[in-house]
Each structure stands twice: as C-alpha cells, then as structure tokens.
Simulated scan of single mutants.
Amino acid sequence: MKSCLIVDDSKVIRKVARHILETMQFEVTEAADGKEALDHVAQATPDVILLDWNMPIMSGMDFLRAYRSMNAVPSAKVIFCTTENGIGHIQAAIDEGADEYVMKPFDRETIESKLQILGCI
C-alpha cells in the first residue's frame, strides 16, 4: 500500500486530505508542522508528502530544504499544497525540490491528477 504524510497546521485540511487519500487506498500519517514531519520521515519514508507552506515552528519551505538535504533514498514525491499562488512562490518551491504544486482549496480530482503525473497511482 502506498503511503502519504500530510503536513499541515490545519486539522480540517488534514482531515479532508486524509479522506481523499484513504479513498485512493493510501496509508496516511499526519504532522502539524515541519519539525514534526522531519521527525516522522527520519523514522519512515512515505511515498508522497502533501506539504503546506505556512506553518508554525517550521515552514513547508524549511522542511523541504531539510528533507532534501537528508539524502533520503528513496525520497518521497513532495506536493506543495497551499494558498500561496504567486509565480515566485511556485518557482521557489520547485527550485527547492518540490515535485508538484496544488492550490487550496483542492478536491479529489486535483490530488488524483497530480499523483498520476508523479506516477504515484
């Protein structure tokens, strides 16, 4: 079974994303900030990380930089999922190692299409 780590400080977003991913047969774990997510990936590498940008303690960008520097092999596909929609934000995320970018609010079709593009389903 494929696995996904949802990293978002919003419990509602995590719940919605969990529901979408579980209906797609993903095993889902959650983290409320980047620091918690780093602790999780140090223990087990998920197939996909759905990552929020703006979070307390450690932002999505700080998490992504730290995660990519860990040289985890294999590494997870990272999908930024955020309200930040400026081309500069998107480019910065891709430059730091994000594989895809999704705008909030999202739905099942959007997540599913990104997972297909990445070869995760």
Score class of each variant (00 low, 15 high):
9 D>W: 04
33 D>I: 01
21 L>D: 06
41 V>H: 08
30 E>L: 15
90 I>R: 13
37 A>Y: 01
96 E>M: 13
15 K>V: 06
101 Y>G: 03
57 I>G: 03
113 S>Q: 11
46 P>N: 05
42 A>E: 10
19 H>C: 04
92 A>M: 11
8 D>H: 08
91 Q>R: 15
52 D>R: 04
95 D>Q: 09
49 I>N: 13
117 I>E: 08
108 R>P: 02
47 D>E: 13
87 I>D: 14
54 N>T: 12
77 K>P: 03
1 M>Y: 03
62 D>W: 00
92 A>D: 12
91 Q>G: 00
34 G>W: 03
37 A>I: 02
11 K>E: 14
26 F>W: 10
33 D>E: 03
40 H>K: 14
61 M>A: 14
111 I>P: 03
99 D>H: 01
107 D>Y: 04
36 E>Q: 13
13 I>G: 03
8 D>T: 06
109 E>C: 07
108 R>S: 05
84 E>L: 08
112 E>P: 11
90 I>C: 07
16 V>A: 00
26 F>T: 02
58 M>F: 01
31 A>K: 06
30 E>M: 15
113 S>T: 11
10 S>T: 06
47 D>I: 10
116 Q>T: 13
100 E>C: 03
34 G>D: 09
87 I>W: 00
88 G>V: 05
114 K>A: 02
2 K>W: 03
51 L>I: 14
21 L>Y: 04
14 R>N: 11
86 G>K: 15
36 E>T: 08
111 I>S: 01
71 N>E: 10
119 G>H: 10
76 A>S: 14
62 D>K: 12
29 T>P: 11
117 I>K: 15
19 H>P: 06
48 V>N: 07
6 I>N: 07
97 G>L: 07
115 L>Y: 02
59 S>W: 10
72 A>R: 14
82 T>V: 05
62 D>M: 00
1 M>P: 14
59 S>M: 10
3 S>L: 05
38 L>R: 11
14 R>Y: 06
24 M>T: 00
100 E>N: 09
77 K>G: 04
71 N>V: 01
39 D>R: 09
76 A>K: 14
114 K>W: 00
30 E>C: 15
46 P>D: 05
12 V>C: 02
7 V>N: 09
25 Q>D: 15
46 P>A: 07
91 Q>S: 14
82 T>Q: 08
21 L>S: 00
51 L>M: 15
17 A>W: 05
38 L>W: 05
4 C>I: 13
25 Q>M: 13
10 S>E: 06
49 I>F: 12
97 G>M: 03
12 V>Y: 12
59 S>C: 13
15 K>A: 12
116 Q>I: 12
45 T>M: 14
98 A>N: 03
101 Y>H: 11
14 R>C: 14
57 I>V: 15
38 L>N: 12
82 T>R: 02
